[in-house]
Design a protein around this nucleic acid. Sequence first.
DNA 1: TAACTGATGAGT
DNA 2: CTCATCAGTTAA
Length: 206
Amino acid sequence: MRADELAVEPPAAARRLLGATLWSGEVGVRIVEVEAYGGDPTGPWPDPASHSGRGRTKRNAVMFGPAGVLYVYLSYGMHTCVNVTSGPDGTAGAVLIRSGEVVAGLEKARVRRVTARTDTDLAKGPGNLGSALGITLGDYGTALLDPASPIRLEWHGAPSTAEIASGPRVGVSVAAEQPWRFWLPSSAAVSVYRRSPRAPRIAAGS
DNA sequence: TAACTGATGAGT
DNA sequence: CTCATCAGTTAA
Protein backbone atom coordinates (compact mmCIF):
# COMPACT_ATOMS: atom_id res chain seq x y z
CA MET A 1 0.00 0.00 0.00
CA ARG A 2 1.28 3.43 -0.91
CA ALA A 3 0.68 6.63 1.01
CA ASP A 4 -1.14 8.22 -1.93
CA GLU A 5 -3.76 5.47 -1.77
CA LEU A 6 -4.66 6.80 1.70
CA ALA A 7 -4.15 10.46 0.81
CA VAL A 8 -7.76 10.69 -0.32
CA GLU A 9 -11.00 11.67 1.37
CA PRO A 10 -11.46 9.71 4.61
CA PRO A 11 -14.43 7.55 3.46
CA ALA A 12 -12.46 6.35 0.42
CA ALA A 13 -9.43 5.60 2.57
CA ALA A 14 -11.69 3.76 5.03
CA ARG A 15 -13.00 1.43 2.30
CA ARG A 16 -9.46 0.64 1.21
CA LEU A 17 -8.41 -0.28 4.72
CA LEU A 18 -11.08 -2.97 5.08
CA GLY A 19 -9.48 -6.39 4.72
CA ALA A 20 -5.97 -5.08 5.31
CA THR A 21 -3.81 -6.58 8.05
CA LEU A 22 -2.59 -4.33 10.85
CA TRP A 23 0.56 -5.74 12.41
CA SER A 24 1.98 -4.94 15.83
CA GLY A 25 5.02 -7.12 16.31
CA GLU A 26 3.90 -10.73 15.94
CA VAL A 27 0.20 -9.98 16.36
CA GLY A 28 -1.76 -9.40 13.15
CA VAL A 29 -5.36 -8.24 12.89
CA ARG A 30 -7.57 -8.32 9.78
CA ILE A 31 -9.51 -5.06 9.70
CA VAL A 32 -13.28 -5.63 9.38
CA GLU A 33 -14.83 -2.40 10.67
CA VAL A 34 -13.75 1.23 10.29
CA GLU A 35 -15.07 4.77 10.63
CA ALA A 36 -13.99 7.82 8.63
CA TYR A 37 -13.39 11.19 10.29
CA GLY A 38 -12.90 14.48 8.51
CA GLY A 39 -11.25 17.72 9.49
CA ASP A 40 -11.74 21.38 10.30
CA PRO A 41 -14.31 23.72 8.71
CA THR A 42 -11.75 25.28 6.36
CA GLY A 43 -10.84 21.94 4.78
CA PRO A 44 -12.54 19.98 1.98
CA TRP A 45 -14.41 17.65 4.37
CA PRO A 46 -15.53 19.50 7.53
CA ASP A 47 -16.57 17.16 10.32
CA PRO A 48 -17.78 18.46 13.72
CA ALA A 49 -17.60 14.89 15.06
CA SER A 50 -13.88 14.68 14.36
CA HIS A 51 -11.18 15.46 16.88
CA SER A 52 -9.80 17.84 14.25
CA GLY A 53 -13.25 19.30 13.56
CA ARG A 54 -12.43 22.46 15.49
CA GLY A 55 -8.90 22.97 14.31
CA ARG A 56 -5.43 21.77 15.16
CA THR A 57 -4.45 20.88 18.72
CA LYS A 58 -1.49 19.09 20.26
CA ARG A 59 -3.43 15.82 20.38
CA ASN A 60 -4.74 15.78 16.81
CA ALA A 61 -1.65 17.32 15.17
CA VAL A 62 -0.77 14.14 13.29
CA MET A 63 -4.18 14.18 11.57
CA PHE A 64 -3.01 17.26 9.65
CA GLY A 65 0.13 15.54 8.38
CA PRO A 66 0.73 12.92 5.68
CA ALA A 67 -1.51 9.86 5.29
CA GLY A 68 -0.62 6.43 6.64
CA VAL A 69 0.48 7.58 10.10
CA LEU A 70 -0.77 6.17 13.41
CA TYR A 71 -3.06 8.46 15.43
CA VAL A 72 -3.71 7.08 18.92
CA TYR A 73 -5.76 8.65 21.65
CA LEU A 74 -7.16 7.64 25.01
CA SER A 75 -10.89 7.17 25.18
CA TYR A 76 -12.96 7.24 28.35
CA GLY A 77 -9.76 7.21 30.37
CA MET A 78 -8.93 3.60 29.66
CA HIS A 79 -9.06 2.55 26.00
CA THR A 80 -6.51 3.34 23.33
CA CYS A 81 -8.21 3.91 19.99
CA VAL A 82 -6.24 3.27 16.80
CA ASN A 83 -6.57 5.51 13.74
CA VAL A 84 -4.83 5.76 10.38
CA THR A 85 -4.38 9.29 9.06
CA SER A 86 -5.80 9.99 5.64
CA GLY A 87 -6.04 12.87 3.19
CA PRO A 88 -3.15 14.80 1.64
CA ASP A 89 -0.47 16.42 3.79
CA GLY A 90 -1.89 19.60 5.31
CA THR A 91 -5.50 18.37 5.28
CA ALA A 92 -6.89 16.74 8.43
CA GLY A 93 -8.53 13.32 8.23
CA ALA A 94 -8.30 9.86 9.76
CA VAL A 95 -9.89 6.42 9.82
CA LEU A 96 -10.73 4.83 13.16
CA ILE A 97 -10.07 1.09 13.17
CA ARG A 98 -13.08 -0.20 15.08
CA SER A 99 -12.82 -3.96 14.90
CA GLY A 100 -10.77 -6.83 13.53
CA GLU A 101 -10.01 -10.53 13.56
CA VAL A 102 -6.75 -11.77 15.08
CA VAL A 103 -5.04 -13.74 12.30
CA ALA A 104 -1.58 -14.11 13.87
CA GLY A 105 -0.09 -14.08 17.35
CA LEU A 106 -3.22 -15.54 18.98
CA GLU A 107 -1.38 -16.56 22.14
CA LYS A 108 -0.05 -13.09 22.78
CA ALA A 109 -3.40 -11.48 22.02
CA ARG A 110 -5.12 -13.83 24.49
CA VAL A 111 -2.71 -12.79 27.24
CA ARG A 112 -3.47 -9.14 26.59
CA ARG A 113 -7.21 -9.76 26.50
CA VAL A 114 -7.85 -12.15 29.36
CA THR A 115 -11.47 -11.07 29.63
CA ALA A 116 -12.29 -12.03 26.04
CA ARG A 117 -14.69 -14.96 26.07
CA THR A 118 -13.85 -16.13 22.56
CA ASP A 119 -11.10 -15.45 20.02
CA THR A 120 -13.64 -13.48 18.00
CA ASP A 121 -13.88 -11.00 20.87
CA LEU A 122 -10.11 -10.42 21.06
CA ALA A 123 -10.06 -7.36 18.77
CA LYS A 124 -13.80 -6.68 18.56
CA GLY A 125 -14.45 -3.03 19.35
CA PRO A 126 -12.02 -0.08 19.17
CA GLY A 127 -10.67 -0.36 22.70
CA ASN A 128 -10.30 -4.11 22.52
CA LEU A 129 -8.47 -3.89 19.21
CA GLY A 130 -5.95 -1.45 20.64
CA SER A 131 -5.51 -3.66 23.68
CA ALA A 132 -5.05 -6.87 21.66
CA LEU A 133 -2.35 -5.17 19.59
CA GLY A 134 -0.67 -3.70 22.68
CA ILE A 135 -0.77 -0.20 21.19
CA THR A 136 -0.20 2.68 23.63
CA LEU A 137 -0.11 6.46 23.48
CA GLY A 138 3.65 6.16 23.03
CA ASP A 139 3.08 4.69 19.57
CA TYR A 140 1.56 8.01 18.42
CA GLY A 141 2.95 9.05 15.05
CA THR A 142 4.29 5.67 13.90
CA ALA A 143 4.72 5.44 10.10
CA LEU A 144 2.39 2.54 9.31
CA LEU A 145 3.49 2.13 5.68
CA ASP A 146 7.17 1.72 6.62
CA PRO A 147 7.93 -2.04 6.57
CA ALA A 148 10.54 -1.43 9.27
CA SER A 149 7.97 -0.02 11.73
CA PRO A 150 6.93 -2.18 14.69
CA ILE A 151 3.34 -1.29 13.80
CA ARG A 152 2.55 -1.48 10.10
CA LEU A 153 -0.13 -2.06 7.49
CA GLU A 154 -0.20 -4.91 5.00
CA TRP A 155 -2.59 -4.26 2.16
CA HIS A 156 -4.33 -6.98 0.17
CA GLY A 157 -6.34 -4.71 -2.13
CA ALA A 158 -9.65 -3.05 -1.37
CA PRO A 159 -12.69 -5.34 -1.07
CA SER A 160 -15.36 -5.09 -3.74
CA THR A 161 -18.24 -2.74 -2.98
CA ALA A 162 -20.55 -5.76 -2.74
CA GLU A 163 -18.61 -6.98 0.29
CA ILE A 164 -18.84 -3.65 2.12
CA ALA A 165 -21.75 -2.36 4.19
CA SER A 166 -22.02 1.21 5.43
CA GLY A 167 -24.03 3.18 7.95
CA PRO A 168 -23.91 5.95 10.54
CA ARG A 169 -20.97 6.17 12.88
CA VAL A 170 -21.21 4.76 16.40
CA GLY A 171 -21.11 6.93 19.49
CA VAL A 172 -21.19 10.16 17.52
CA SER A 173 -23.74 12.74 18.57
CA VAL A 174 -23.29 15.21 15.70
CA ALA A 175 -23.26 14.57 11.97
CA ALA A 176 -24.83 11.20 12.76
CA GLU A 177 -26.49 11.14 9.36
CA GLN A 178 -23.18 10.70 7.55
CA PRO A 179 -22.82 7.01 6.56
CA TRP A 180 -19.12 7.04 7.35
CA ARG A 181 -18.93 3.68 9.11
CA PHE A 182 -17.90 0.77 6.89
CA TRP A 183 -17.71 -2.92 7.71
CA LEU A 184 -17.52 -6.42 6.23
CA PRO A 185 -20.84 -8.10 7.10
CA SER A 186 -19.27 -11.50 6.53
CA SER A 187 -17.19 -11.09 9.69
CA ALA A 188 -18.39 -12.10 13.15
CA ALA A 189 -16.02 -9.57 14.71
CA VAL A 190 -18.05 -6.53 13.64
CA SER A 191 -19.09 -4.74 16.80
CA VAL A 192 -22.79 -4.41 17.52
CA TYR A 193 -24.24 -1.09 16.51
CA ARG A 194 -25.36 1.03 19.40
CA ARG A 195 -26.62 4.53 18.71
CA SER A 196 -25.14 7.31 20.78
CA PRO A 197 -27.48 8.21 23.66
CA ARG A 198 -26.98 11.84 22.63
CA ALA A 199 -27.81 11.29 18.99
CA PRO A 200 -31.25 12.42 17.80
CA ARG A 201 -33.87 9.72 17.94
CA ILE A 202 -35.23 8.38 14.69
CA ALA A 203 -38.71 7.71 15.96
CA ALA A 204 -40.69 8.25 19.13
CA GLY A 205 -41.56 5.37 21.41
CA SER A 206 -40.33 3.53 24.49
C1' DT B 1 -27.99 0.41 33.24
C1' DA B 2 -24.15 2.63 35.51
C1' DA B 3 -19.46 2.46 37.35
C1' DC B 4 -15.32 3.23 35.90
C1' DT B 5 -11.05 5.94 34.30
C1' DG B 6 -7.68 9.72 32.71
C1' DA B 7 -6.05 12.77 28.88
C1' DT B 8 -7.73 16.69 26.67
C1' DG B 9 -9.20 21.40 25.67
C1' DA B 10 -12.19 25.12 26.70
C1' DG B 11 -13.39 28.14 30.14
C1' DT B 12 -12.10 30.73 34.52
C1' DC C 1 -6.32 26.09 37.59
C1' DT C 2 -10.94 23.53 37.19
C1' DC C 3 -14.49 21.16 34.77
C1' DA C 4 -17.21 18.74 31.37
C1' DT C 5 -16.40 15.78 27.83
C1' DC C 6 -15.11 11.37 25.29
C1' DA C 7 -14.50 7.72 18.22
C1' DG C 8 -15.95 2.43 25.45
C1' DT C 9 -16.03 -1.90 28.07
C1' DT C 10 -17.55 -4.56 31.62
C1' DA C 11 -20.15 -6.62 35.30
C1' DA C 12 -24.63 -6.70 36.96
